[in-house]
Every structure is written in structure tokens, then in C-alpha cells.
Nucleic acid binder design. Structure first.
Length: 482
RNA sequence: GGCCCUAUCGUCUAGUGGUUAGGACAUCAGGUUUUCAUCCUGAAAACAGGGGUUCAAUUCCCCUUGGGGCUACCA
């Protein structure tokens, strides 16, 4: 039985961020690589930033992604509860231990005092930091103040000098001057712990073996380690993964467009692509493979392949990967996926055939309605479309090809792709032109579009004989009026 | 400002004390198949700068510069 236990510990402040997805993926991969457990824990210690329904949302999107957690809200587990506000009594017990040990202390400083202190320090060009004002209050003083009903927080007592050494699995040793460390707040006035305290207690109690989190946490890393030391606990391994950046610079944010996994889902990105892309942003396999399913990633994943510098989120590569994963699906699976996009169709087409054609060239699902609209209604189009330099077709050849194709198509009794292809290629021979010269104008007449999924024959088959002939006649009429 | 992290093509990255510095996306140019696409072939494209160490540094060390993070009774 593997000892590896990782957790994803989001605060429920909205949708799952595309950058957080990467943390989820690596958490999952590291755990599953060793047949370990992946845990979901909700860090809702900030009451102000709660968003209703966020937890439900999060669980739903993880489910959509196909990332299952072994313990967490809803599924339970022996280290629960997995929602921090349901663990308040636990934190209380542990904070008292710390105070008893003299590793933490009551602080009665008002927010006002702290604000003034900060302002004064900034004015003097000093680093804003708590001045340890309440650090040496006697037990009696503390008790008296509590009795009077004075509000308090509990702070961690940091060493005043020396250095604290921490170890990141990716970067190695990092050293911090203890002077830089502030006596941080562990328990807020409202008796709810801060992230710094709750996450350490929970990681320990839940036997987390590897903490994977964003690199923005490196600065508080020494404080975390000092907390473990204060408790006398063995810290887990820490892996700080580099941040995902906007192409414009800085953290990926709302201003860069879509930041929620939800947004990508709605735009027609596949979970497979999103996961694959996230993994590749910061991790590299031994060989040069790029396209992976989650199970394949689990097999290939290793900490050795992890990078340490921040990575820019490049949507073009995501799109490409999405196309790759679309192509890798079975036709049945793909068909089921795109079924909803056919709703607006009144005509009864061979939708499976449309799916087959679509699967070859779709990048993101949301493009589909625009791609296939022409099946329903022939759009207005410019007759210059009939001219194409590369194909060496012009309006003259087009007109001839269209005219002659009518009788050819009319004579087809068994309307299938094989026959249509055979007959049309015969026509090409008869005219004595290149395939493209005749088939280009037919495709234009049938679709009214320069770019279509599938070629003339595929479109003809889907459209049906009657509709084809009608559309070709429209084309002839347009060309005839030149 | 202080502290910390980081630095290979535009982007994601591989790599090594001696390499023609490799791959992928994107871009461009050809080609095939019934068009675009798919597919194939090819091109252009990078070791931030300066000092060391060394016979030899893209690789190791230092500095500079650039990028980023943290600096809350937010996570």
C-alpha cells in the first residue's frame, strides 16, 4: 500500500481556475503514479470571499474532467471532515497546544494600531512588519484582557535571528533570514484559523505526503516549516510548481479572457486536451511525445520531468491538442459529443456522416455550428469564389462542370459516396480537366463557402440528390448572368 | 523599497564541460489525396549581457539586466 497522499485544497471563491487545473493534474498524477490517494479539501476559512455553489461547481467540473478524488466532501474518508469550517474545534485544540508550548501568543493589537504601525514603517521606508508588541505579555495580563472581553488574535512566535532552511523538491535548498519573518496570525479574531495554520494542521492530520502548490507560496514556506517544528511534526515533501502566466505578462487573470475551466468546457474544449495541455505546461516526458490521455500521463509521469520556470499559457497549442484528441476519439464517441450541435437542423440529414466529416477537421466544438450551417441553408455567396488560382479553375470551366454535372447526378440511382465519386470522376475525364478544376466549383455551388468540412463528394452525399441539383442550378444561374 | 524564485527559437520545452543545440505549437514555402483542412516534405527561428573557473563553457560560480512572486485578521 502506497504512502503517497496528495491533496488539492482550493478555496471556494468561484470556478476552477485554469491555472489551478495544473495543480490538480500534478497532484493526481503524483498520487496515482504510486497507487496513492488523491484528496480534495475545501479551504473556506475566509468567510468574506465565499461564493455560493462554488464547492458543488468544483466537484462537478472535476467530475467532467474525469479526475476522481479518493477522499473529500461527498465521498468521505477516514480523515474527514474535508471542509475546514467543519473542523474548527480541531484547530482550536491545536492552537491551544501551541500557546501552551510558548510557540504562539495572544495579540490584542487593534486593526487601527496595526494600520498606523504599517503606515509609519512605510513612511520610514522600512518593511511593514508587526512589531511583536504583544509578544511578551504575561499570562496574567492576557487573562485579564480576555476577561475584559478584549478581542484578540493568536500569532506564531518566530525566531528573532538565525536562518531557516527549507527544501523544495524541485529547487532544492532555500534559505531565509528569520529577521524577515513576521509573527504571523494563526487564528483570526473570529476564531477561524488562517490558511497558514489550517493547512499545516490538516496536512499533518490527513497524512499528506506531498504538498503540491503554486510557487507563490514559496515566500511563506519558512513560516510553514517553522510551524511544523513548533508542533514537533515531520513536514511533508513540498513541490512548488511554477506559475502560469499571461501572454501579456503577469499572472493569468480575468483580463486575459477565459480563466475558468468552465469557460473552456463551454467553448468546446475536451477534458482530455485541457488535462494534456496542463501537464505539458511544466512537465516533459522522457521522449518527445506530446499527446497523452490521463492514464498515459499516470504511467509516464515523474517528478524528474518537472520544470521550474513559469510558463506562458498558449491557447494555440491548446487548440491543436484539442484537435488531436478529437481525432483520437472513436466516431461513436465524437458523434455523441457533437449531437447537441445538430439541434437547430430542421432537415433530416445523415448526422453520423456529418460527424465523420467534422471529426477530421474540427479544432474546438464551438466552431461547429458555423461550419455546418450551409447544410441547412445555402448562404449567399460571391461568384468570384468559383475562381481559384491554385486549382486553376475559372468561371468558364466552372460553368461547364456544373452544367454537365446535373445530368450525371440525376442519373445516379443509388445515392452513395462510392457511386457519386465514380460518376463525378468520370465526368472529369470526359471534360478533360483536373479533378480539382471540376470538383472545386461543385463544392462551391453546394456549400456557398470557400472552406468546408469535407469535400464536394462528401457534401453531395449528405445533402442528397434533390438538394444538390437545386443548388447546382443556382450556381449555374449565377454564372450564367455574368 | 525589502525578501525570494527564475532565464535555450515568438510560445511550450529537450539537452550537454567538447552537439550541425533536438522536438512540438505557431509562421512561411512546396507536395499528395476531390478544395480549405487532414497528411507529407522543407525553411526561417534560441542558449539575455558581463566577468570568472577551465585546454574547453549554453552547461559550473558571481554580478548585472529582464521576467515573476510575496510583502493582509485573502487564500
Amino acid at each position: 500500500m502506497s504512502k503517497v497522499r496528495t491533496r488539492f485544497a482550493p478555496s471556494p471563491t468561484g470556478f476552477l481556475h485554469i491555472g489551478s487545473l495544473r495543480t490538480v493534474v500534478f497532484d493526481y498524477l503524483l498520487a496515482k503514479r504510486e497507487q496513492g490517494k488523491f484528496i480534495l479539501r475545501i479551504e473556506d476559512t475566509d468567510q468574506k470571499r465565499q461564493v455560493k455553489g462554488a464547492v458543488k461547481n468544483l466537484i462537478e467540473i472535476l467530475d467532467w474532467l474525469g479526475i476522481k478524488f479518493d477522499e473529500g466532501p461527498g465521498v468521505g474518508g477516514k480523515y474527514g471532515p474535508y471542509i475546514q469550517t467543519e473542523r474548527l474545534d480541531i484547530y482550536k485544540k491545536y492552537i491551544e497546544k501551541l500557546v501552551e508550548k510558548g510557540e504562539a501568543y495572544y495579540c490584542f493589537c487593534s486593526e487601527n494600531r496595526l494600520k498606523r504601525l504599517r503606515e509609519a514603517q512605510i513612511a520610514k521606508k522600512q518593511a511593514p512588519r508587526y512589531d511583536n508588541h504583544c509578544r511578551s505579555l504575561s499570562k496574567e495580563e492576557v487573562e485579564a484582557k480576555i476577561k475584559k472581553g478584549e478581542k484578540f488574535v493568536i500569532r506564531q512566535k518566530m525566531p528573532l535571528d538565525g536562518k531557516t532552511e527549507v527544501f523544495d523538491e524541485l529547487r532544492g535548498k532555500i534559505e531565509f533570514d528569520n529577521k524577515e519573518l513576521e509573527d504571523q496570525i494563526l487564528m483570526k479574531t473570529n476564531q477561524i484559523p488562517t490558511y497558514q495554520f489550517a493547512s499545516v494542521v490538516d496536512d499533518h492530520l490527513m497524512k499528506i505526503s506531498d504538498v503540491i502548490r503554486g510557487a507563490e507560496w514559496i515566500s511563506s514556506f519558512p513560516k510553514n516549516i517553522l510551524l511544523y517544528k513548533a508542533f514537533g511534526w515531520q513536514p511533508p515533501r513540498f513541490i512548488h510548481i511554477p506559475l502560469t502566466m499571461s501572454p501579456k505578462g503577469g499572472k493569468l487573470s480575468k483580463r486575459d479572457g477565459d480563466t475558468a475551466v468552465e469557460d473552456y468546457k463551454n467553448k468546446g474544449y475536451l477534458p482530455e486536451a485541457l488535462i494534456n495541455f496542463s501537464a505539458l505546461l511544466g512537465w516533459h516526458p522522457k521522449d518527445n511525445r506530446e499527446v497523452f490521455l490521463l492514464e498515459e500521463l499516470v504511467k509516464e509521469f515523474s517528478l524528474k520531468g518537472m520544470g521550474i520556470s513559469s510558463a506562458v499559457f498558449d491557447i494555440k497549442k491548446l487548440k491543436w491538442l484539442n484537435g488531436e484528441h478529437i481525432r483520437r476519439k472513436s466516431l461513436e464517441d465524437f458523434h455523441n459529443l457533437v449531437l447537441p450541435y445538430y439541434k437547430e437542423f430542421k432537415n433530416n440529414f445523415n448526422f453520423l456522416e456529418i460527424s465523420r466529416v467534422l471529426q477530421k477537421r474540427t479544432e474546438i466544438l464551438s466552431e461547429i455550428p458555423e461550419m455546418i450551417k450551409f447544410f441547412n441553408i445555402l448562404p449567399k455567396y460571391d461568384i468570384n469564389l468559383f475562381e481559384n488560382k491554385k486549382m486553376k479553375t475559372d468561371k468558364q470551366i466552372s460553368l461547364e462542370a456544373l452544367k454537365k454535372s446535373i445530368s450525371v447526378l440525376e442519373n445516379i440511382k443509388d445515392w452513395n459516396e462510392e457511386t457519386i465519386k465514380e460518376k463525378l470522376l468520370n465526368l472529369v475525364k470526359e471534360i478533360g480537366c483536373k479533378n480539382g478544376q471540376a470538383l472545386w466549383p461543385i463544392r462551391i455551388a453546394l456549400s456557398g463557402k470557400q472552406f468546408t468540412p469535407g469535400g464536394a463528394i462528401e457534401i453531395a452525399f449528405i445533402l442528397g440528390k434533390k438538394e444538390c441539383i437545386q443548388r447546382i442550378k443556382i450556381g449555374i444561374k449565377k454564372l450564367g448572368l455574368m
